[in-house]
């Protein structure tokens, strides 16, 4: 059974999607990730989709679901490395991806997560929102 690997880095979980996922694999990732968050008590999840050429409505929805679920489990989710073409397509597709935080690259994503964790630690409630660039609107250079 193929799976997308989930790495633990300190208090964060790191997922790098390297393959074009079929739907079941995406659902599997969603399950695995929520399980890992509850097991490890991770404070943040970083999902790197820089290798994805295509994000259609299903995968987009899956990303949104992960984001929502992890927030319920008290972890922030940042999606990083979205290709500009993918971002544009998602918008054209009419997908709004509510609740997904995005960042240009892994480094910025980690910053975002740390800021969020610090905000939570300092009792700042829902702080630390969109610090990085919002991938959905960005048409900056390719991030690979």
């Amino acid at each position: 059974m193929e799976r997308i690997p989930i790495l633990k880095m300190g208090e964060f979980l790191l997922v790098t999607i390297q393959v074009d996922m079929h739907d079941r694999l995406a659902l599997q990732l969603q399950d695995d990730l929520t399980n890992r968050i509850s097991q490890t008590g991770a404070k943040g999840v970083l999902i790197d989709i820089s290798a994805l050429d295509i994000v259609d409505s299903f995968i987009g929805r899956m990303l949104a679901n992960i984001s929502l679920m992890s927030r319920v489990l008290d972890a922030a989710t940042v999606v990083v490395g979205m290709q500009p073409a993918v971002a544009i397509t998602l918008v054209e597709l009419g997908l709004t991806l509510p609740g997904i935080r995005t960042a240009l690259n892994v480094e910025k994503g980690m910053e975002l997560l740390r800021a969020y964790a610090a905000g939570v630690a300092s009792g700042g409630g829902d702080g630390g929102a969109n610090v990085g660039a919002d991938g959905e609107g960005a048409d900056g250079g390719p991030v690979r």
């Binding site: 050429d53 295509i54 994000v55 290709q83 500009p84 073409a85 544009i88 397509t89």
Partner: peptide
């Protein structure tokens, strides 16, 4: 690339 992504999606 953009249209490739559109068609593929």
């Amino acid at each position: 690339r953009q249209d490739q992504a559109r068609v593929a999606t």
